[in-house]
Amino acid sequence: MAIYKLQINGQTKQVNVDPDTPLLWVLRDHLGLVGTKYGCGISACGACTVHMNGQAIRSCSIPVAAVGPAKVITIEGLSEKGDHPVQIAWDEVDVAQCGYCQAGQIMTAAAFLKTNPKPTDDQIAIAMNGNICRCGAYHRIREAVKLASTKA
């Protein structure tokens, strides 16, 4: 066990965990930030996506020891009032079915739109391809990313 000081959603958080504990489980079990979801644990589904220094990463596959002073943003910290353009678009398009994958989808989309503010459908599909939605909400995910790109 070791003490780590993490920069999460603009705050410094201290945890005492094993160095190999994935960021995902630090967020969920130790910091109570359960919006970030566990889906596969092997970087294959995208449910656990968070931002690290603005980049979308799979939190299930980053050990806490590797996070260092990086700025981590989770779904809870994406916006103060739930009004990030991507969140608004997700609500307007009614993307969620079961909703379990959606935090990961939203985080992937938000990071992607920063690098490509006006994407084509194909670019969206490529960017979102790492995020599985078992309910098959893909059409609305794409529509919502498009809509968000008009709001930013």
């Binding site: 930030l33 359960v34 919006g35 970030t36 989770t74 779904i75 809870e76 994406l78 739930g82 969140q87 997700w90 609500d91 009614d94 969620a96 909703g99 959606q102 935090a103 939203i106």
Partner: peptide, 8 residues
Amino acid sequence: ENKNIVTG
């Protein structure tokens, strides 16, 4: 439930 889902 949209709001709750998109804010985690």
